[in-house]
Design a protein around this nucleic acid. Sequence first.
DNA 1: CTGAAAGCGCTTACAG
DNA 2: CTGAAAGCGCTTACAG
Lengths: 344, 344
Amino acid sequence: MANILDVAAKAGVSRSTVSRVINNSERVDAETRKNVLQAMKDLNYQPSRVAQSLRNQKTYLIAVLVPRLSNPFYARLMQGIESQALAHGYHIILCNTGFDPDKEFEYLKLLEHAQVDGIIITAFRSSLETVQSFKKFGPIVLVGEYLDNDLFPTVTVDYQKAAYAATEHLLKLGHRQIGLAVGSLDSVINRDREMGYRKALADYGVPVSEDWIRASAVGLDEGRQFLRSLLSSRGLPTAVFAASDELAVGIIQEAKKQNIAVPVELAVVGFDDLPIASIVEPQLTTIAQPIEDIGIRSMSLLLDCLKGKSITERRIILETQLTIRDSCGSRYEEEASLVRYEQQ
Amino acid sequence: MANILDVAAKAGVSRSTVSRVINNSERVDAETRKNVLQAMKDLNYQPSRVAQSLRNQKTYLIAVLVPRLSNPFYARLMQGIESQALAHGYHIILCNTGFDPDKEFEYLKLLEHAQVDGIIITAFRSSLETVQSFKKFGPIVLVGEYLDNDLFPTVTVDYQKAAYAATEHLLKLGHRQIGLAVGSLDSVINRDREMGYRKALADYGVPVSEDWIRASAVGLDEGRQFLRSLLSSRGLPTAVFAASDELAVGIIQEAKKQNIAVPVELAVVGFDDLPIASIVEPQLTTIAQPIEDIGIRSMSLLLDCLKGKSITERRIILETQLTIRDSCGSRYEEEASLVRYEQQ
DNA sequence: CTGAAAGCGCTTACAG
DNA sequence: CTGAAAGCGCTTACAG
């Protein structure tokens, strides 16, 4: 492979000049530049990224930590992140953590030892202190998992508001017994969903029943377990808000198995609007997140940090949308129950 | 960040010696080694990967080309690949090509310009010549998309055999009118599936009806289109073999919309055994591929190439499994129809 | 067993 | 506008 000296020789200049045209910086004579460019083309020369990395102390690499790529939410997020990185000459190192703090730590060390220029964290189980201790080594952007006091630039949605909307949807349909299946309350994004849920109930004057609230992981299996667990304790509410589509689908699957009719006996609202939401039967009413856009924006934010731009907006909040399908009853029933509610 | 000279100073030796203990090579005095190790620990020293890369002409980076990460098949494949890479000190650069030959070319150039040590390609639309022209820059492993004459080390499954098994399953259930929804026939893995399908029909003395065969992309939408297309031409067969679960689910969704009962009026077999296969209703009978294992094996194969091991097995073929669920009728019906068939 | 020196392929102040 | 030189942080023949 040709190197900078080969190009210099071919163009009859010094490596300094070649370097200048590579970085199209400073004043280089137009004629000289043309010659160098030609030589580069002739030799199919491309500057060595590795050498540039060593010299510039930049790798043009970004580590992206995801808990589980097989979760379609993270896969799509990655797509957004990757497309934006590519558009700006960066590449993505895939870091699948499996929610394992040790792995997270390993990957964070990529930043410490300058193997990447920055990190995007889409979920973490490590302590906040651990993550913070890496801030000094380079920019870290958080997705979803924002922290209360703007410690990191963050792209997220308003989980509380979204959860409120989901719960309110059920309330407006006349439901007064509403369960909550939510992810680990170690994480703000889940505590926020819980708050939105509680706030909606409070606003509608409906008492919260702690027996119908469960925090767990957010996969299909946990959805099934959720339903079984309710069944074996105080019995079922008439509706449930699940904090992920996978959770919601698990609940629906288990309901079918137990011969509980959805939505008639049990209404279900999900969260994310993944493809499975429109595959499951009945199709899932859910909160749509702008997943790819979240990815794109988080990468943009990181790029800004890398460029040393002053970040005016440290927390970017994107809009969600309640997407109504069939898992909470038909539009007609909704109106009917609204009437019932207003007549009370 | 501490560098090798800092460690050398602290341990009272030269950088050469430090380097030797880093690479735990050659004879270093036990006492000296201990001191150096201690100094490294004290300074939280870790050798610079970038500097090592430049010096060793190795990046410890692997590019993995996937067409579309949001397809759960590729997401899970990636997980397998990533876990194996991590276990061997390599990192993965995510290359989402969107089936775009230009992007594929861009990513292949990572190898040419030594930004990665090797490449795993899980699907490509570029010409074979294009891909081949990059072989001289470093090892390339193919997943699934094997080529006839062992041009690249490959990990795959026997698509023909699997398609034969799927089709035979339908034949044994008594079906004699069987459609085929398959991916682009530009790719061997799809031509193989088609061959398996034809072979099964031939072996059972059933004539092939070209009207019931369609090649397209393999997403949900194409599944829906497939059914509509059949409906608007010669009418429906009694069964269809779809070359991906997404295709199969699309077919089932469209069938529901058109009030065609699955499996009674139309039996469907899928391919991959993704999570959606057990979410759709009726649950999908499908061919299970050992996805994560394919990922792991392909990375191992690449690692072997990198180590200069002579590859004895250039094409690794993993087993698939027909997984029977509800989209082709019950076990009982299967036996009944078997009897019918044998009595003919 | 250990060290001095060269070199991997760049960039950039410094001089001219 | 252009070049010589130093240096990014390593590894490895070569000497001793």
